[in-house]
Amino acid sequence: MASATQALPQPAMNYRRREFRRAWRSMVAAKWPLLALLILVCVIFAALFGPQIAPLDPNRQNIMLRLAGPLTEGRGKTLFLLGTDGLGRDVFSRLLYGARVSLLVGISAILVGGTIGVVAGLVSGYFGGWIDDVIMRLGDIQLAFPFILFAIMFLVILGPGLANIILVLGVGQWVTYARIVRAQTLSLREKEYVEAARALGDSTVSVIFRTILPNIMAPLTVIASFNVASVILSEASLSFLGLGVPPSVPTWGSMLAESRDQLLANKWWLAFYPGIAIVMTVLSFNILGDWLRDFLDPRLKTLG
């Protein structure tokens, strides 16, 4: 610990610590973000160690034991904790594996969209001129093209697949990031410390990524946390249309979409557990996003 402290200049380290402590206190005071954080930690744990926790193979079917209710005993010593689905697969194991894929889709799509958007926004805002024009028109085209049509069109053509879904959902998000980053960059470009960095002979790339980018990360984090939630929902809708991930890949969205024929037949567990998983995760991302926004927005800090 001591050596790690020495690696950073003392004042910066202290500032960072103080900020973390302040964040923690604010989180504890607000209570809900703390709960959200706890839920997300659980979900991330399930995503990382799902394969180790899962009692059964999530893709092992047994149609003779399909649609068994929660706590049904299977052959041998197996227990279907949360019941089985339409092909006799263990819902609990699929839920655990699903955590991994759903989070993967949510986060990677944001990373894809965020990266494209941030780079486009930085370039656009920093250089201005015709580059700015081209990028912003591309953004307008993307916005004017209804996202759902964009997604359906490309998934019908590329075929369903995890990478394709991530790509399509990611590309659909870039404009939001690009616009915010551009606006921030425009205002930062003329700031003294950016001028200073430039005057010191930093390369353009270095100015953009080392000086400007760190200063606009805060609002981006807030948007990203909301976005993860909406991407998880979009994935569910695409699964409903039959454009989701391949059948061997469990996701919460596709589990929910598969359950729709069973709703009238009152097989509630098929929809309930993935539904709860989605609601809790999305809710947590939203609550954290809210809190983060309040925390980072100095104007709101004064409010009791």
């Binding site: 939630a229 909406s230 929902l233 569910a236 809708s237 409903f240 969205g253 929910l256 979409a257 729709r260 709703l263 009238l264 929809a271 539904g275 989605i278 609601v279 999305v282 809710l283 939203n286 609550i287």
Partner: peptide
Amino acid sequence: GMLGQSIPSFWLGIMMIM
């Protein structure tokens, strides 16, 4: 508000129909 942002519309639709 939070719940509304976590429920997929197809699911809400089928539940309302039922």
